[in-house]
Design a binder for these strands. Structure first.
Lengths: 391, 391
DNA sequence: GTCAAATAATTCAACCAATAAACAAATCCC
DNA sequence: GGGATTTGTTTATTGGTTGAATTATTTGAC
């Protein structure tokens, strides 16, 4: 418990407990009753009732048919996340497509629009205008479904700091204020919008699938019961192989962005100190051996180079799981043995517990999904703010 | 705000705010008044008064002479951490010495006992018995000073997991239950005792000096005002060069131990994939080029190898500061240029903001100090539990 | 069929902790 | 000495959880 710097008042207690109840409902396999939530959280039944009332009134929970009866007693009312409440708008701009999706509070993808087109000839303003109209369409479709879009997040393949896209080499962008551009579109002007790096958001997308949430489409092998586990699958490195190689690091269920937001530059980890020169100016960067260009050229060292760099990550951070995404996902089978051989040899603790290596589950949608997830995650973790919004 | 899994009651509010007040007093340059604490925290003066009363009654704070008067108004009563309250017992066992120290709530070292002797011939039980009697003497000395030892922490040069020293190669230990051994000594039997890796604890010792706490002996260059800063000096990598090379990673003021507690194994990060064989079985590990044996042999590649490995850390984690400790501290000047050249070349963002490299400030005492700090940190971050102890 | 047992959910008084505002204390400055 | 000013305490109020009692609804036994 690190002493945060803010005072706590009674209302913070309520905010916390609202989040706790929502979280418990979200992570239950079957719609739980108030009594079940009470047992799971340690809160009194009376308190849970009061909190649930607020969440029902605020349109975050709904009562559904109870879970199958077990014995005697008054039947319970099942609780579930609503599918007509707040939703997140996930946006992505990449070299050869624009995409938008809407995810509801349960984590279900309700709308999905993808527009294939080479963005490189377009200047940032043009590309963002096109994305904006795609986003506006997605929002409109969602709201005719009864959803309320709570915010939007944009994934870009580049370095983001202070809300600005500092540099996105493959788009040819530099210091672009993407948020301002999107806010300039009338249909989006009222939304809170954020930008983040594509690998970071894709990592969050994988988190949704892997850990913490049965609303995701598959359970990881060996995962325990529905509750938030301490670390096993909640800590992993997501590696996104594109032209460059980016990584999103999730530690204990939280994305670690670094002090200045520049973490995850695994593409420029040195693999062969005297190796090939890299466009970053150094020599022997991973990107030169395992970037998409090297892969396309049939680089024989790709898997070994990845294994060496990943071994460094595991030795330093003790992350138990590595997820390969982007261009790596489809060729996972051909990379696996080469990477695992290096991990076995180079990770000091590999004998004690092997590192789990797996392909990304969401494919090309990971970043967009992760972007939308950040929005609904915001509502889930702070429902009190959402409830206050109803003036 | 990640929704934790525990409910919050009113008493948690009090516990949090007690910690907040204590933290604020600890991080103030001059003894603050209740009103100043109120202003700094956002809590009401009335609330601060009530909290301070508890902390005074519980012997964590004392009233001292007020800070120099400024203008009109009733004079304030200054508040300061007590130097006769709870204290932490820091223990260290290493290849050629045993050590114990006592640190009070203000962070001052009140007692320090070091016993030079080669521990390698001794078996674990012998070594721990000797350390135990050193610890008992330190505790006795502290308690005749009016201190109350709140707990002890032990630093060992090895891999610790589940409270056990799994392996400490340089001591020749394997699966040693050091805590049990120490608890077997009558004078220590009532203390909460923990063990941790030497590099981890040394990192925490450096944190005390570098960030967050003016009670440390020097302020870092460029550090801001007394308050807990977001990241600058609160995130760093501490690298401890001994026979092996360990690292303690501090992110946002918290030690990151890894999912299984095995983080920080920088000594086995690959630097030259086809390089010298390492006793871990791999090739080209950093340890072979920058471990103490290589340094003693005058290895010319030491600085470069360190620079390569550290560049990987910075690229991955965006840590702005690297602290060199252990055997590196005394030869810092000779390593600096070589390391910085690699960092400049290989860290992608080095042009945007250079990585700060500095020697450890605490020298050989870092781990022992850090161990003691973990105890008083426990009291500082959760004063409510300490207060409850007075049945 | 009726009644007892069991389980779910709500109501209500008590309690705890923070707040706001009034009040008391101690000093400065004219 | 008296107003202005700041510190610290007192008191009533409010928000939120608790625990016990109460109501509601079902199963199962006789």
């Amino acid at each position: 418990m690190s002493a945060s710097t803010t005072p706590v008042r009674q209302s913070s207690v309520r905010a916390h407990n609202l989040a706790l109840v929502l979280h418990t409902v979200a992570n239950s396999a079957n719609p739980p009753s108030r009594a079940a939530v009470s047992a799971a959280t340690g809160l009194t039944r009376a308190t849970v009732s009061a909190l649930v009332d607020d969440l029902l009134a605020g349109g975050l929970l709904v009562e559904v048919d109870p879970p199958p009866r077990t014995g005697a007693g008054r039947p319970a009312a099942g609780l579930a996340l609503t599918s007509t409440g707040p939703a997140g708008l996930g946006l992505e701009i990449n070299v050869d497509y624009l995409a938008a999706c809407v995810v509801d509070l349960t984590g279900a993808v309700r709308h999905r629009h993808v527009e294939h087109a080479d963005q490189r000839p377009a200047d940032p303003a043009q590309a963002l205008a096109a994305l904006g109209s795609l986003a506006a369409r997605a929002r409109h479709a969602a709201e005719t479904d009864g959803l309320i879009v709570a915010g939007a997040a944009l994934a870009v393949p580049g370095l983001v700091a202070g809300g600005l896209v500092r540099v996105a080499p493959n788009l040819g962008w530099q210091d672009v204020d993407a948020v301002q551009a999107l806010l300039g579109i009338p249909e989006l002007a009222d939304l809170p919008i954020t930008v983040d790096n594509e690998a970071n958001l894709a990592a969050l997308g994988e988190l949704r699938v892997a850990g913490g949430d049965p609303a995701g489409h598959h359970s990881p092998p060996g995962a325990g019961s529905g509750h938030s586990r301490p670390g096993e699958e909640n800590s992993f490195l997501y590696v996104s192989g594109e032209i460059g190689i980016g990584a999103g690091l999730v530690l204990d269920g939280e994305l670690y962005r670094g002090v200045r937001g520049w973490s995850g530059e695994i593409g420029h980890v040195t693999v062969y100190p005297d190796g090939r020169p890299c466009r970053c100016g150094a020599r022997g960067c991973l990107e030169q051996y395992a970037g998409q260009e090297a892969l396309d050229a049939g680089e024989p060292l790709a898997a070994a180079a990845l294994g060496i760099a990943l071994s460094a990550v595991v030795n330093l951070l003790d992350v138990p799981v590595i997820v390969l995404g982007g261009a790596y996902a489809p060729i996972f089978a051909s990379l696996r043995d080469g990477i695992e051989a290096e991990l076995r040899a180079r990770v000091l603790t590999s004998a004690l517990a092997p590192v789990v290596l797996r392909p990304a589950s969401l494919g090309a949608d990971a970043a967009m999904r992760g972007a939308a997830d950040t929005i609904i995650r915001g509502v889930r973790e702070d429902p009190a703010t959402w409830l206050r919004r109803l003036t």
